[in-house]
Design a binder for these strands. Structure first.
Length: 430
RNA sequence: GGAGAGAUGGCUGAGCGGUUGAAAGCACCGGUCUUGAAAACCGGCAAAGGGGCAACUCUUUCCUGGGUUCGAAUCCCAGUCUCUCCGCCA
């Protein structure tokens, strides 16, 4: 039989589930500020299935002929091939449209996620730590760093461009110390396995966690050579860590898988022009300690709580004031079904700023990655994946500089960090 | 950069034009035996998609894409990836 042209299989939302409850699906997705063209979806699906039926009938006919080895039927078989080709290419086109439609639809929010269109509808669930009271006007981290000659934005502008920074001496050490401190804590106290991953991900890897196709504009694409698959600098270690199970079928006793890595992250920050242009809050490149859990899907909810606690644990031990919020349906990331943001207190802005985001993605990413496991009943089912920052190192650094600043512009080092800082108790001008 | 080898089910690994969705082993699940476990023995065990309330049934899939043939895991072409050796660099 002639090989029928195959399509690259994309996995995303399960069309079967959607079909069974289309109204509801569209309604739930609309809570996420995403409109689904219901009639288009329905038309494509019906048409697709119709063509599949037609194609399969012909294929069966052809198969019978070829098995019969009856020479008198060979001509007919050739004709069937042509027909099949025709129908097949038509079907492929429809399927492709359907795939494109589906792969741009975000994950379904869990039932307990508050409804809302934007961040103003996020719900605070916890507030912890004491907001520092200064007897002087607290400086911003960039003022502090520049005054100490340990943060240099101008230099980065010269060598690279905007939204990059040079850290020097004790502040560079602080950045490195923070990464080490966080990783140590997650590996020794929280049961995570340390990974040092590639910082470059292939196109299919980026698709797996949901960065592609919808958010391709925010990714730094890099060119290796003309031939190989497109490659991207990772926007977060989530991408590369989560994809470690891409295409795999794990055993139940491999789970849960808990991974931690400290990596630079690269983001174009397209769409945030003019936002947070001052200081280190929003950079094209920053370090982040990332937590990833791969679990049985039914354990996603409890794992999310656990992971979030691992993240806040870092802030607790650094004695930084923070609050925890549940993101509303409209503010969640593409792949998430539920997200907690952890926000740390930033004195110079007199408000809380995101320092970690912990999300359960349910089976959304696993489906895209084709990552499965054998469950109790020996069925092969999609895994659950979660990711969270534990924490964003750059922003933690900012929080420490600002919250621990002294009147003379020097910075007190939190107790737990001192072993990572050559036992310094203070960063001050030499 | 030069020269080779390879890509098959959860894993290892046979097959090299038709009854092969694919041997065998391991893993896994069920059973017999056992006080329990192990061992041994018996049985089961790929995925995706379509149809059906269901029992069930059909189609596709042996790296990807094209081609030859009535028929391809098997033959031809192109590509990707992996491995080994040499060179180069760290």
């Amino acid at each position: 039989m002639r090989k029928e042209s195959k399509r690259k299989k994309k996995n995303m939302h399960n069309i079967k589930d959607i079909r069974a409850n289309l109204e509801n699906f569209v309604k739930t997705i609309s809570k996420r500020n995403h409109k689904v063209d219901q009639s288009l979806l329905q038309t494509l699906d019906t048409k697709n299935r119709d063509l599949i039926q037609k194609k399969e009938n012909l294929e069966q006919e052809k198969k019978i002929i070829s098995k019969s080895k009856d020479k008198s039927l060979f001509e007919k078989s050739k004709k069937l091939s042509n027909e099949i080709d025709q129908i097949s290419s038509e079907q492929l086109k429809i399927k492709n449209d359907l795939d494109n439609l589906l792969s741009n639809i975000p994950n379904l929010p869990l039932a307990d996620v508050p409804e809302g269109s934007d961040e103003s509808h996020n719900t605070e669930v916890e507030k912890k730590g004491k907001i520092p009271e200064f007897k002087f006007k607290p400086k911003s981290h960039s003022e502090l760093g520049v005054d100490l000659s340990m943060i240099d934005f101008d230099l980065a502008t010269k060598t690279t461009g905007s939204r990059f920074v040079f850290l020097k001496e004790k502040i560079a050490l602080l950045e490195r110390g923070l990464s080490n401190f966080m990783i140590d804590k997650h590996t020794s106290d929280n049961g995570y396995t340390e990974i040092s991953p590639p910082l470059i991900a292939s196109e299919s890897t980026m698709y797996g966690t949901g960065q592609i196709p919808k958010f391709i504009d925010d990714q730094f694409e890099i060119k290796l050579d003309d031939k190989s698959e497109r490659k991207f600098l990772i926007p977060t270690a989530e991408v590369i860590l989560t994809n470690m199970v891409k295409g795999k079928i794990l055993n139940k006793n491999d789970l849960p898988l808990r991974l931690v890595a400290s990596t630079p992250c690269f983001r174009k920050e397209a769409g945030s022009y003019g936002k947070d242009t001052k200081g280190m809050i929003r950079q094209h490149q920053f370090y982040k300690v990332e937590l990833v859990s791969v679990v049985e899907p039914e354990n996603c909810k409890s794992e999310l709580e656990r992971m979030t606690n691992c993240a806040t644990g870092i802030l607790d031990s650094l004695k930084l004031p923070y609050r925890k919020v549940v993101l509303c349906t409209g503010d969640m990331g593409f792949s998430a079904e539920k997200t907690y943001d952890i926000e740390v207190w930033i004195p110079s802005e007199n408000k809380y700023r995101e320092i970690s985001s912990c999300s359960s993605c349910g089976s959304f990413q696993a489906r895209r990655m084709k990552a499965r496991y054998k469950n109790d009943k020996n069925e092969t089912v999609f895994l659950g994946t979660l990711n969270g920052s534990g924490l964003a190192v750059g922003r933690t650094l900012i929080a420490i500089l600002e919250n621990y600043q002294l009147e003379d512009g020097s910075i007190k080092i939190p107790e737990v960090l001192r072993p990572y800082m050559k036992n310094l108790d203070k960063i001050s001008i030499k």
